[in-house]
Design a protein around this nucleic acid. Structure first.
Length: 289
DNA sequence: ACAGGCTCCTGCAGGC
DNA sequence: TGCCTGCAGGAGCCTG
């Protein structure tokens, strides 16, 4: 399931391949599910636009687009901020659990559950594939509404003070809070479990009762785990692949996630599993307090 | 306002 | 072997 590191990896890969390319033709399959606004609106909106840049915001992939039938993209290498200023529309992709965004040759075999195909002027094709259809696609014309921004703080850049404020006075378990995208954008089940292990905190701890030192340990653990996972191209559990269709390696580094009954990498005692906030939750009862 | 539970959806694993 | 059931989960919605 794609979380921040997987989405970051995909966004970087797609950006390298399609930046500066122009959308020539759009094909959507008829399923209602993945479209936040109507496929006809998205199709019409996307056609003829140049992809200025592709980047990650929370768990969303944002394609910054130039004006309809407008000028070609700015020279490559120009900073993203500059592109964002000139961006006149966005295509926002959320991968849900099983979504893939692939940039490849048009004659690549068509995967089952392909919901969108964007033909590009270079001859490449950008495809959105999503078997479980939890993913979402949205087109935004920025002349009519503001650009997309994640609801929560980015766990890679959130400061100590901001982080503390997010959890202050809340009574829900820290694991549930980490999964709440309105607080932090980008953390999902894998990295919530892994960061709580590295911070030595039990997932059920009430967030309002964590000490200042514990919260800071968690913030740093979260950042370290996410940055390391990005370096390794993400975690490939389920069927995650990057923009090239290549699997990540961070699943080999997991300390608790999906390691129920296996020995803890630190104390050798068995990892336990429970259900919390409706999610499978993995922890070491000896190393986490 | 907040917290918890249900729902969507499909592929896969396990049991019989 | 083949069928059936249960489980996995992000996020929006509903309820208490």
């Amino acid at each position: 399931m794609p979380e921040l590191p997987e989405v970051e990896t995909i966004a970087r890969g797609v950006n390298e391949r399609v930046r500066g390319d122009r959308i020539v033709e759009v094909w959507f399959c008829g399923h209602r599910q993945p479209f936040k606004n109507l496929p006809e609106i998205q199709s019409k909106g996307l056609q003829g636009r140049t992809i200025l840049a592709v980047h990650r915001t929370g768990k969303h992939i944002v394609c910054e687009l130039g004006p309809a039938n407008g000028k070609p993209a700015p020279a490559s290498g120009s900073p993203l901020d500059e592109c964002a200023i000139h961006s006149s529309a966005q295509w926002i992709v959320h991968l849900g659990m099983t979504g893939r965004l692939l940039a490849g040759p048009p004659d690549a075999p068509l995967a089952a559950h392909t919901h969108a195909r964007l033909s590009l002027a270079s001859g490449r094709e950008l495809r959105f594939v999503d078997p479980r259809r939890f993913g979402r696609l949205e087109f935004r014309d920025l002349s009519g509404c503001p650009g997309f921004s994640a609801a929560g703080a980015d766990p890679l850049t959130v400061t100590e003070e901001e982080f503390r404020q997010l959890f202050h006075g809340r009574r829900l378990p820290i694991k549930a809070a980490l999964l709440n995208q309105k607080l932090l954008s980008g953390v999902g089940n894998i990295y919530a479990d892994e960061s709580l292990f590295h911070a030595g905190l039990r997932p059920r701890r009430q967030c309002g009762r964590l000490t200042r030192a514990e919260l800071e340990r968690l913030r740093l653990a979260l950042r370290e785990v996410l940055e390391e996972a990005i370096r390794m191209g993400g975690s490939s559990v389920s069927d995650y692949v990057d923009a090239n269709g290549v699997r990540g390696l961070f699943q080999l580094e997991h300390c608790v996630y999906q390691r129920t009954g296996l020995p803890c990498r630190r104390c050798q005692r068995p990892i336990r599993r429970m259900v919390l906030a409706g999610r499978g939750t993995h922890y070491c009862p000896h190393c986490q307090h």
